[in-house]
């Protein structure tokens, strides 16, 4: 599903050049659960952003479903992302002004789904994440665990084939963190491909493969 070939990313400021990724080649087949690990600043999130089509590589190729998307313009990346990729973030990234239902239905809205279809899919996602009783609540009225559930519900509501999670348990206590990881495992078992960035060895244990990055380079790959 995902394949990168000699992927590099360099950030340029006025007088400073920072190499975030160098020559990264990975392959993630459909249905795999991959964890990316490494110390802070090693390029994990940068890689995830490129995989999620939020950013473009400086060089190298990125093949998504066999198509080279590395040179895609923003409009094409947005179109491809819709309904195919779901994101889960450490800081949940819910919109403060939207309630739980509105936050979850956001991807469906941009996919142009009908109101009835949206309602049905949002209901299913909320039921699954056990947050139906919070439908009218706003993010600030929810606990961290509940907010992450809403974020996961939003990430899966369009039934994406790829879920990208950036330290999804980083802001949660161990109990809520475990629940989130169980949810991601379930989604993976149902067929979703998951790429997760984490610092936690415990969380990485839920993946089938762990990729280790250091200074922007892939150093080891461990199959669990």
């Amino acid at each position: 599903m995902i394949q990168t070939e000699h992927l590099s990313k360099t950030f340029r400021a006025e007088e400073v050049e920072t190499i975030a990724l160098r020559d990264v080649t990975i392959h993630v087949p459909p249905g795999e659960f991959v964890a990316i690990m490494g110390p802070s600043g090693c390029g994990k999130s940068t890689l995830l952003n490129i995989l999620g089509l939020l950013d473009a590589p400086t060089s190298g190729r990125y093949l998504f479903d066999g198509a080279d998307v590395s040179a895609f313009k923003e409009r094409e990346r947005t179109r491809l992302r819709k309904g195919v990729i779901g994101f889960v973030f450490q800081s949940f990234n819910l919109i403060d002004d939207l309630n739980v239902r509105e936050n979850i239905e956001l991807p469906l809205l941009y996919m142009g789904e009908s109101a009835a279809s949206r309602k049905k899919k949002v209901r299913e996602a909320m039921d699954r994440m056990e947050i139906s009783h919070r439908v009218k609540h706003f993010p600030r009225q929810l606990s961290g665990g509940q907010q992450q559930r809403v974020a996961i519900a939003r990430a899966v509501v369009a039934r994406p084939r790829l879920i990208l999670a950036d330290e999804p348990t980083g802001n949660l206590d161990s109990r809520n963190g475990l629940e989130v990881m169980n949810l991601l495992s379930e989604l993976n078992k149902e067929g979703a491909t998951i790429v997760m960035v984490t610092h936690s060895r415990h969380d990485a244990g839920f993946a089938s493969r762990v990729i280790n990055l250091f200074d922007g380079q892939l150093v080891t790959e461990t199959i669990l």
């Binding site: 994101f87 990234n93 956001l106």
Partner: peptide, 10 residues
């Protein structure tokens, strides 16, 4: 940013 990630175009 969140809306864009979730598919909102320009």
């Amino acid at each position: 940013a969140i809306r864009k990630i979730n598919g909102a175009a320009l």
